[in-house]
């Protein structure tokens, strides 16, 4: 199984992606993650204005038989959430790196410990073979 791993962003071991643009970042879950969860039926997102540290659970992505916390790859304050997902959670399945983004964050510190696309692809390959 091949999973998309776009080159223009970074990843976490828990399968989130983050795209940093100056002092803000957009976050979502990876193609592998949406695939592992299956049909996504509900997305729970934080309130705009809430602050989180690196690795904090800031949302939940649910399929029929699983609920998966989503961890913030960076620290900062939520400045925008993808409200379209509340009515169309399946967008996370169909376009995880585009219209299926989850939240935008105002960074409070420089990001660290993120995986580059090649390292993440390697990590996915290992997980998938388990």
């Amino acid at each position: 199984m091949d999973y998309q791993t776009p080159q223009d962003r970074q990843y976490t071991k828990s399968h989130e992606w983050v795209k940093i643009d100056g002092s803000t970042a957009t976050v979502g879950i990876s193609d592998y993650a949406q695939h592992a969860l299956g049909d996504i039926v509900f997305v729970e997102l934080p309130d705009v204005g809430a602050s989180f540290g690196v690795g904090d659970a800031f949302g939940v992505v649910e399929s029929v038989k699983a609920a998966s916390d989503v961890y913030l790859p960076v620290s900062g304050e939520i400045i925008e959430i993808n409200e379209a997902l509340l009515d169309a959670p399946e967008t996370v399945n169909s376009d995880p790196y585009g219209a299926g983004w989850l939240a935008k964050v105002q960074l409070s510190a420089d990001a660290s410990d993120l995986l580059d696309p090649a390292t993440y692809a390697q990590h996915v390959a290992e997980e998938a073979s388990k």
Partner: peptide, 13 residues
Amino acid sequence: TLQTREQHIRREK
């Protein structure tokens, strides 16, 4: 439906 609220999926959460 909406079973992800429940103990058999979310366990301690």
